[in-house]
Each structure stands twice: as C-alpha cells, then as structure tokens.
Nucleic acid binder design. Sequence first.
DNA 1: TTCGGAGGCGCGATTATTCACATTGCCCCC
DNA 2: GGGGGCAATGTGAATAATCGCGCCTCCGAA
Lengths: 213, 213
Amino acid sequence: MDNSATSTAAAPSTADRILNAAEDLFAEKGYSATSLGDVADRVGIRSPSLYNHFKNKEALYEAVLERLLTDFSAPLTELNGGPVTNERVFSWLETIVRQHHANPNLARLLQHAALSGGPHTNELIDRLFRPMFQSDAKIEGGSITLFQNTGLQPWAVMAFNNLVMSYVTMAPMYRDLLGQDPFSETALENQLNLIKMLLRAVFAYKGEPAATT
Amino acid sequence: MDNSATSTAAAPSTADRILNAAEDLFAEKGYSATSLGDVADRVGIRSPSLYNHFKNKEALYEAVLERLLTDFSAPLTELNGGPVTNERVFSWLETIVRQHHANPNLARLLQHAALSGGPHTNELIDRLFRPMFQSDAKIEGGSITLFQNTGLQPWAVMAFNNLVMSYVTMAPMYRDLLGQDPFSETALENQLNLIKMLLRAVFAYKGEPAATT
DNA sequence: TTCGGAGGCGCGATTATTCACATTGCCCCC
DNA sequence: GGGGGCAATGTGAATAATCGCGCCTCCGAA
C-alpha cells in the first residue's frame, strides 16, 4: 500500500513513479479527463517517454488497477476461511476501513467506474465484491441473524461497504463540512467508532426484520 | 423531477431538451469528459446550435445544476420546521430515498464534483448539506439521543446520506451483483426496508455510544 | 418582412500516438 | 582491460482526431 517498488527504501523506478502519478490522477479526475501530459508532468518527464514503459493509456490504466486490486484483495477475502462470527465481521470491517483510509484511490477509481460504466467495471465487481458474497453465504447461527432469510443480506453487505467507500469518495465534503482533515488519525477514529456502533446496533436489534420481495 | 418544461404534457422546448440531455451526460461522465457534441447528438441538433440557448459549456452545466438543486432542495429543508421526532426523521429519509430514486442525476453529479473537487463543490455543499446540519442542531429529547454529546452527530447524518446516495452512484454494481434493475419498484422497496431497519436499530440501541475525540 | 433558431465552416487549443534521434549504462569479446 | 555494440530510456517534432467556440448564412413562422 505504500506504492514503493521494493521492500527496502530504494528509489522507486520510473515505471513505479508513473504508476503512482497515474493512480492519483485517474482516481481524482477519472480516465478520460486525465491527460498523459498531466501524468508525465507529475513524474517530471515528457509524455512520449511514457510509451517506453506502457503500451498506451489504456494499458497504464490497467496496470494501475491491477496493482490496486492485488494490494486490496487479500484482506477482503480473508473472511472466507472459517465461520463468520460477530467478532470476525468487526475486525474485517475495521480492516477495510483502515485500508481505504491508507489509500483512498481504489474507492475513487471504483466510483468513477461505477458512474461511467466503463469496460473495467465488471472486473472490479468480480474481484472486489463477489468474494464478499461468497463468504456471506457461510454466515452461521448466532451472528447476523437479522438478515437471515430476509433476502436483504446482500443489500446489507453492500450498504456497509458503501458506507466505507463513500466516506473516501466524499472526503472533500467532509473536509468542508466538519472542518477537519478527513484522513487524519482522529477522523479515522471517528469513522471507525460510528461504523462499529452501527454494526453493534444491528447486531443487538431484535425487532422484526424488514419484509422482502 | 420529470424534467419536463411545463406542468402540462406539452412538448418540451429545445432549451429543456438540451438540459435533459446534458444532465444525463454530465451525471454519467462528469464535466470535462462530456463533449458538447455528445449533448447536441442526443438532442438531435449540431453543437453550435447549443450556443443559441446557453452562453457556453460552463453556463450549461450551471443551468443543469441549478434545476437539479431547486428540484431537490424543498424536501431536504422541510425538516427545519418544528421539532425533530423519530417519525419525522423516518419520513424525511424516505423522501430523500424516493427522490434520488426518481432522479439519480443529482447524486451522480455530486459524486463527480466531490471526486474532482471542481469549482462547484462548495455551492453543492452549501445548498444540499448545510441545511441538514442546521436542522440537526435542533434535535430534541426522545429522538436520536444516541448521538447526543458524542460529537458523532454530523458523522451520522453524513453516513445516512451517503448510504442513500451511494446506492444511486453504485447502481451499475447493484445491477450486476443482484441481477435486477436497481431502479425497479421492488429494488426501491428493498432499499427502503434496509435503511428503515438500520434507523430502527440505531433508535433502539441502548449500548454505550462511541467515544469521541 | 422580420427574427429566433438551426446549420455550415473553420480557427485555435488539446490529446493520444508515432517516429527519428540522442544519450547512457552494461555486457561480451578480443 | 578496452572497445564495440545493444538495449533501455529520454527528447522534440509531427500527425490525426477531437473539442470548445465564434462567425455568418439561411429558413420558416408570426
């Protein structure tokens, strides 16, 4: 997640510096609004030099996506091993929150893809969200019984995930409305506390579940 | 919210047809990725003809924004009159959900603005979100006591709002993952049931509130 | 006849991409 | 050990496409 090429503190290669710059710009402006000139400027080279490292703009975007997906996929699928208990859901959610907090770019890229419906949307869905639904099928008694047999279980999973990601994609709004850096340590604690409390409330809720259709 | 010019079913004027097309395209691709040629094509005219109705691309975008904001602002501020009870929070949230369901474009435009941090972000914040926080300050005893004096109240407001809006901005993902049209009537009912149940769970939760910093 | 509104034309800027070329560092062979 | 290539990596120039936008013409309805 630190976008560095090697595990030691060696200087990153040009290809990695291009990836870093492109990741930030794609995440901020989206694919078509980012120009290769912008990327090259941020790296400190001319735009034709980019073609020494990536076939074209599309390949650069895919490389950015690939690096982000490999960085994020491991903790997302860790819920697949073993039964799903309340505690594991808690720690899984906390991991996701901290991950997106440490690098907001995946959520932003995903949001751009969802809005514009580009060709990479399906790959993002398959690698990020489908694993969640597979693990979700294994939820066992005593945990999230509220959503059992209501048909709302996938909706609830998506809701909590959207909660995490929309915090990141809406970060500028938070900055202006709350008057503090949304990526500071205290802001992270606030968001974690809120989400955990929401989850606790859902776990503790014994009222009638919602109807399904 | 039906994007028609008059209250009767008269044919919409060219300016309104331009607004409709531009709204859809800006919401889908964002400002800079939308070309005036795309807008003109969708209307069925040539792009220079757009300048007979709007000064330039920027003015067209602002007109789109203005129409959306006036359509959406009324129910958003209706919570300001009188004390905030649980029932009124329920109906207010339901109104917002139905509004974004009927026209998803405002949420998408807002998401684009938040991601790219364009010059209109501040106006959107002021007209959409600040009213919520003003009404939020008036919450009275017996309602959302959970967040009183925790410092998390604005965070909770934003969280529920993000929940509603991210459903709309992530609609393509829902379509692929759940295998149904996210804007169908049954999908709307599902989302409403989930959000209402979350709110009920929060209202009913008597555990310790989260710490604040 | 007048005038709002649509179209044709084209300018200047931007963009992705290609190409020819200069430079650098490294390896291999004499 | 020295020198000749060779791959990697940078650059400027050129190209074709697209875009926002202004100018001017023309048509049809009032």
